[in-house]
Design a protein around this nucleic acid. Sequence first.
RNA 1: GCGCCCGUAGCUCAGCUGGAUAGAGCGUCGGCCUCCGAAGCCGAAGGUCAGAGGUUCGAAUCCUCUCGGGCGUGCCA
Length: 576
Amino acid sequence: MTDLQSHLRDRLLTVLTDLGLDRAAAEPLLQLGPPKNRDHGDVALGAFQLAKLAGKAPPALAGEIAGKIGADGVIASAEAAGPFVNFRFARAALAKQVLTAIAANEAPYGPASGNGQVVCIDFSSPNIAKPFHIGHMRSTVIGNSLCRIHRHLGATVHGINHLGDWGMPFAKMMTAYMHWGDETELHKSPMRYMFDLYKRYSQAAKDDPALDAEAAKHFQALESGEDNAERRMWQFLRDESLQAFQGPYSRLGVTFDHITGESFFEDKMEAAMQRVTAAGVLEESDGAEVVWLKEQGIKQPCLLRKSDGTTLYHTRDLAAAFYREETFHPDRILYVVGAEQKLHFDQLEGVLKKMGEKVADAVEHVPFGLVLSKTEDGKWEKFASRAGNAVFLDEILDESVAKVRNVIAEKNPDLEDKEAVAEQVGVSAIVFNDLKNSRIKDVKFDWDAMLNFEGETGPYVQYACARLASILRKAETPVPAPDAIDFALLADAERVLLTMMDFGAAVQRAAEQSEPSVVTSHTIALAGEIHSYLREHHVLGAEPAVRDARLFLVDAARRLLTTGLGLLGIAAPERM
RNA sequence: GCGCCCGUAGCUCAGCUGGAUAGAGCGUCGGCCUCCGAAGCCGAAGGUCAGAGGUUCGAAUCCUCUCGGGCGUGCCA
């Protein structure tokens, strides 16, 4: 069954051709979209551009289109309203097309088969010499969602954790451990212990600048490639940290296809540097090796080697870009990294461009805003981790889960598996909150808002799923087959159906713009529509044919909400 | 100083790349559980889209400037 939108497009193009317009010229000008107000119709056509092409006034052309298109089995009506034409689909066709596609798990509601795109997504990438705190969460959950969205659309996805396991921060941690480290203490609570070491080092380095010099020496020794004390210490701390990070990752349901941190590129940086040299873009400046990008409007040069001979973040990212190009042949490489690092990625892209590397076109920084906390006087400011008051992600998740536990005790005390459900719902509330708004916006970390599970929240959408699952359980009969359904009986579900129909476009846009919040918004909208519908339309008590049709609708809604939440990396419990 | 980002209801945000009367949630006020899950639903109040110019049939959306706030700005990542 062809989908409704393309049927409408085809019919429109035929009509426009009859009206004397060139089909190829008209096609890109076909502005179809949801009307401002869904009471106007299901889909609206703005006739502005087409009118220009036809040399007519928009309202005149709109009138001609509306008059000429005529109803068929799919299109129920077409009405001109000024420069717009509002279309309405036949209710039975709308219900049948949308719901059977969802039931069959067909694209766009289900995963598409390969679309040929290869997408590398560099996300999370924490500096593992520091604890996993609230600030690390954004890249992790945004990147995780983007991986799922692109996979849903049929892309080959390489989710990459570009760990910060090299460079000065790690050298500082090593230095701290060499001075004060204790393995027994470390094993008691690795993340907390390393955070304490980190704090101790920062404090000590303020009074004693020699400490940073010592760290730099250790880094030099590490980068020498020799099997020395530094290397063994690095290996030890890396293993311990990485293991400690598994906790938050598994709670968030995040996995990676490649855990290739900065250290992975240790032996690939020389080749990368030679490539830069061969391209003739490397210059010496104050003892360092740099690439100037002034001609691209970037004033700060990209530093690739320090005057002490060691490498930098840029050097590793450059080597990583070459490696990814050769290994994966990506169409896009998304770097899910905070907006404060925009210059870094502009420089990376700039260097690749200056070298004439085509991978420059694939490089795409996906920036996001900061996490802010509320001050005493009600203002918002950046979370200060250096002051030693870092909020660990685990603590935030625990707090949320505890709140959910209370809500369950109050509203659903007989629930089985309370603990597992509390974990699912509590974690998802935090994740959902992070994915709710445009990623470039700063996240205002507000306990009250985050632990309020009413309105536009993760638990709200999950609650809709649980409610639908409950109806399906109580039906005590399997969901009827599609050919047993009289879809005309679902005319009253038009708002639910039209929202469902928007799903594909939402996922598409989320992928193009690297913006999971588009999917988040859609799940909220669909949950809202189905909640409203259920209020007015009882399922189980309806007469058999109506009951069957509504059961089919309920099942599809539950599936699509589950899919939508899945794209966000959020589980949909059957009960909560 | 320079570069980039943000500014929409009391608060937190949508607004689908220029189209119809600017929409949600929270909070406030008022309704709805003898009825499939009230973590829900329905309604009310609440906006000079920071401000000023410009572009055009049409601007919250594009351009310029101003004002607020934030981030960044050579050997950290």
